[in-house]
Design a protein around this nucleic acid. Sequence first.
DNA 1: ACGCATTTGTTCGTATGTATT
DNA 2: TAATACATACGAACAAATGCG
Lengths: 263, 263
Amino acid sequence: MPSRLAAPPAHAGGPAFSPLYQQIKALLTREMQSGAWKPGQAIPSEHDLAQRYKVSQGTVRKAIDALAAENLVQRRQGKGTFVASHVEAQSQYRFLRLTPDQAQAAARTGGRSTTGAAGMARQLMGCQRQRAPADVARALGLKGSDAVVRLRRLLLAAAQPVVYDDIWLPGSLFKGLSAERVESYKGPMYGLFESQFGVHMVRAEEKIRAVAADTDSAGLLAIPVGAPLLSVERLSFTYQDRPVELRRGLYRTENFHYRNALA
Amino acid sequence: MPSRLAAPPAHAGGPAFSPLYQQIKALLTREMQSGAWKPGQAIPSEHDLAQRYKVSQGTVRKAIDALAAENLVQRRQGKGTFVASHVEAQSQYRFLRLTPDQAQAAARTGGRSTTGAAGMARQLMGCQRQRAPADVARALGLKGSDAVVRLRRLLLAAAQPVVYDDIWLPGSLFKGLSAERVESYKGPMYGLFESQFGVHMVRAEEKIRAVAADTDSAGLLAIPVGAPLLSVERLSFTYQDRPVELRRGLYRTENFHYRNALA
DNA sequence: ACGCATTTGTTCGTATGTATT
DNA sequence: TAATACATACGAACAAATGCG
């Protein structure tokens, strides 16, 4: 009997059991999901957790290693293990891959792209509540009758528009979200979601295309109709792979590029 | 005295030492780089390596774990640990992110995108040797007088051109590369490089933009001049972060998209 | 079909090193 | 300096997957 905690049912298809450290990992994840351990805060020490769950410290360590590999937590020698946060400087703009062309790539040297595409000016173009369009509802796992928040904004570099974002969020999770709250918040959008609404983005999937600017986007981004734009459709997930944001971005890439690392 | 193998010098800037398992990792990497352990082959067992290097099995294990995390090797329970290979079915087209739009995304379920953008027809448009242009030489770390191989090709889906690739390789590493060798090889380009020239691609960096088709690319890809195209500039590295390929790709994204996972 | 040897995977325990406060 | 927390290293035992006789 390999499991001493919650033994998963032995139904066909799924594994009849899972290693102890994965069960511990699931328990730790649940603590974060429930909000008991909040982003930026330290979780209990390995020694502490080992006692709490009656397992060896090495097993807790392996569970935490797995969480760290998925960027759910961050280990800091001598200090502790911290729940990942989009508010902290280290992991701010973690999901933003747009980079100025002339940014000296300190890519592999561990140099967090200090320049990045951060520090761009924000301009909110709209914040409305409405019923979810069919495609948005499908992506977010909502019913067509459910409410969503739609948020549109521009990012500008040197007074030039570079990014237009069209963001859709489940209304039930973002109750008091308003234009004022967005505009008054300093720092990345995901920091706002996390600190004000308790929704922490864990991972995302993007679909990228080249498209021609239509009249709307051309106007917003100050380019000719038909000019090429990078279209980035992002679906973001919180804990337990629950989709909580659909973001459609249009990027001008004359002076910026989307950087990606393949391994 | 933490190091029992090669103790790195304690010069300023670099760490005065490195953990044992990292030293083991470096030794293992050197075996692969030298060609002593070839892609697809099994490396010695953990027990074997532990004896060879006079360290514990756990230390070898941690070294191999690190290599596996970087996709340099692949572990298979009960069988052994194998040098990663672009020839094998599992990791074929590892660097290809272009996906048909209607491919049912088995993304997280572990389902290797069987559909993928594999199975596309290839059409070689040229294979020449020449002196390296300045920008290519800079990217590959060559002198302007060095020879390079330039390779151009189309990828077609349903008889429609989808991808145009312009590939630059250091001439010194790819001596007998010819159009015939490329056309007769079945399987991915990186499989050819690996099996025929002993150059294994370990990782890559990509810069992605939206561009308008010029007359050349419009003709090649059968689209109007000015149509939007995804421009993907890829720099690929072999062991020790040595750049060995510059690839400029243009993708039609009407029916395909570039998929990316953020974590 | 069965058992056995091999290899990686999991779990435990202990000791020591390094970073932080 | 001391206490705390993560990081490294060792050793041991058993489990699970594989392949072979």
